[in-house]
Design a protein around this nucleic acid. Structure first.
Length: 478
RNA sequence: CCGGGUGUGGCGCAGCUGGUAGCGCGCGUGCUUUGGGAGCAUGAGGCCGCAGGUUCAAAUCCUGUCACUCGGACCA
């Protein structure tokens, strides 16, 4: 029976969430493992998702004046060493190239874990005058970090991302840049991926190595764990001083630039899976789905069926819909299950009975079947897709809201952390010791961010009881 | 990095008191099927993760190693 095979194919979320995730990632043909730990093959379906994410972001970046560049893969050790906090943050997880052919290199080269240092070196070369600013660069590339524990999408050693790096004359411009990009990231997550986010600033102890301020968008997964889906950083002039990036201002004084950097990686695909997926597999938001509509012909050997299906495909394609006709000789039931597994938002069933009646069956991946007239289908389908998109966001939003708890005391925090996880919001005094203490007592819960949307939950820090005027989100994270 | 589990055709597994590999699914071909993972027939495919060792003989026993996976620690 269909149900039985489904259950065998994918572990239920309730039974074992981690196993469910691994099953979905494999069965939906997103990835394959390679022979190097943490270096993962992105199969066509996963890469198509990434391309759509890329396309959205790249368009937004270019609209806002950014240019794409490409920096080298290798960083000499001496260059990496220039900014102290930065090197301390990354040193434990960089991989080194020590030989060229059979010869040992005079200086070893690190495979970029991120490219701040390369951008800084380059900016020092090309920035001379206030007329050269701002520099608004982005690059699409992969980076390498020698992680101990790896999981598909969520934690790779090599992963794809974009990293933006900008240099500005004024501090405020660099801050504005970091905040504007954070908005773009939030719009990607909410409008395109149907993943509601919490925007905010990272605490001192959680910010990026070398940054003055780090901002993040935080998402909530089905299992109550948070996922940081994107971050942006304001660097002040710290890197500029370490790398000697100076320009001559209008008044002929020599000044350091102010910088920002920001990135989103393929990790966000893991977020899509864990935000929307269910026990039948992936569920993809229509705006990002590589295939939005799959046409499943029924009794396709009967005359006229495939022809009609091809005609419907052509019409929908002409209407700008990403549609695919599966005319393979698999049984309809097989196809139903297959495309559910792959999260295709809308299935269009078309058989002899339908054709005779001038209609088809539309089945939403999110639930619900309807009969639709073939006449005007190119209007009904986009409508159905936006209904799905909206429903997915609403559902995710509801999940996020239901996972937020308020705690006024440390005892409450610990209880909630152990009982249900999710986000906990509390007042916080600003002390790193309080973060440490929460982490110890809860077995790893950390601050997520200080949300831009602040509320006054009380007058004192939930952890230490000292006066507090900041509200902070906490949570377990991926 | 610490602890548990697992590595045998593409996938899932059996075989582990040693004797040279088997099942289900999938795959190829043919016919019949087609509204929730179709049926019959026939065929192809594996030096058992890798490296040592014990033995007349190793998928099986021993040692090492690598990978995957779960949990923990760590983590822009």
């Amino acid at each position: 029976m269909a149900d039985k095979k489904q259950v065998e194919a994918i572990t239920s979320m309730e039974e074992d969430f981690a196993q469910w995730y691994t099953d979905v990632v494999k069965k939906a043909e997103l990835i394959d493992y390679s022979s190097v730990k943490g270096c993962i093959v992105l199969r066509p379906y996963a890469y198509a998702l990434w391309e759509r994410i890329q396309h959205y972001m790249d368009t937004r970046f270019k609209e806002t004046g950014h240019e794409n560049v490409y920096m080298p893969l290798l960083i000499p050790e001496s260059l990496l060493q220039k900014e102290k906090d930065h090197v301390n943050g990354f040193a434990p997880e960089v991989a080194w190239v020590t030989h060229g052919g059979t010869e040992q290199l005079a200086e070893r080269l690190c495979v970029r874990p991120t490219s701040e240092t390369l951008f800084c070196e380059h900016y020092a070369h090309v920035v001379q005058s206030w007329r050269d600013l701002p520099k608004l660069y982005n690059q699409w590339c992969s980076v390498l970090r020698w992680e101990k524990t790896t999981r598909p999408f969520l934690r790779h050693r090599e992963f794809l991302w974009q990293e933006g790096h900008t240099a500005h004359a004024e501090a405020q411009e660099a801050v504005d840049e970091a905040l504007m990009i954070l908005d773009i990231y939030a719009e990607l997550a909410e409008d395109v991926l149907a993943m509601p986010v919490i925007k905010g600033r990272k605490t001192e102890s959680e910010k990026f190595a070398g940054a003055q301020d780090t901002y993040s968008i935080e998402c909530m997964m089905h299992d109550g764990k948070a996922l940081q889906a994107g971050t942006t950083h304001y660097f002040g002039d710290g890197f500029a001083k370490a790398f000697d990036i100076t320009y001559t201002a209008k008044d002929n004084s020599l000044r350091h630039v102010f910088q920002s950097s920001w990135g989103v990686s393929t990790r966000i695909i893991g977020g899509i899976i864990m935000t929307h997926g269910d026990d039948s597999g992936l569920v993809l938001p229509p705006r990002i789905a590589p295939t939005q509509v799959v046409i499943v012909p029924v009794a396709s050997h009967k005359p006229g069926v495939l022809e009609k299906a091809a005609e419907v495909e052509k019409n929908l394609k002409a209407a700008g819909i990403r549609v695919r006709l599966d005319s393979s000789d698999q049984s309809p039931g097989w196809k139903f299950a297959e495309y559910e597994m792959k999260g295709v938002p809308l299935r269009l069933e078309l058989g002899p009975r339908d054709i005779e009646a001038g209609r088809c069956v539309l089945a939403k991946r999110t639930g619900g079947k309807e009969e639709a007239s073939l006449e005007g289908l190119e209007l009904r389908v986009p409508e159905a897709l936006s209904e799905i998109q909206r429903a997915m966001y609403d559902k995710a939003r509801k999940n996020l809201d239901s996972q937020i708890s308020v705690a006024l005391t440390l005892e409450e925090m610990v209880t909630i952390a152990q009982k249900r996880g999710g986000f906990i919001k509390t007042m916080w005094c600003g002390g790193a010791e309080c973060e440490e203490r929460v982490k110890d007592l809860t077995g790893g819960m950390k601050s997520r961010n200080i949300p831009f949307e602040q509320e006054r939950l009380g007058e004192t820090c939930a952890v230490c009881g000292k006066p507090a005027d900041t509200m902070l989100y906490w949570g377990f994270q991926y």
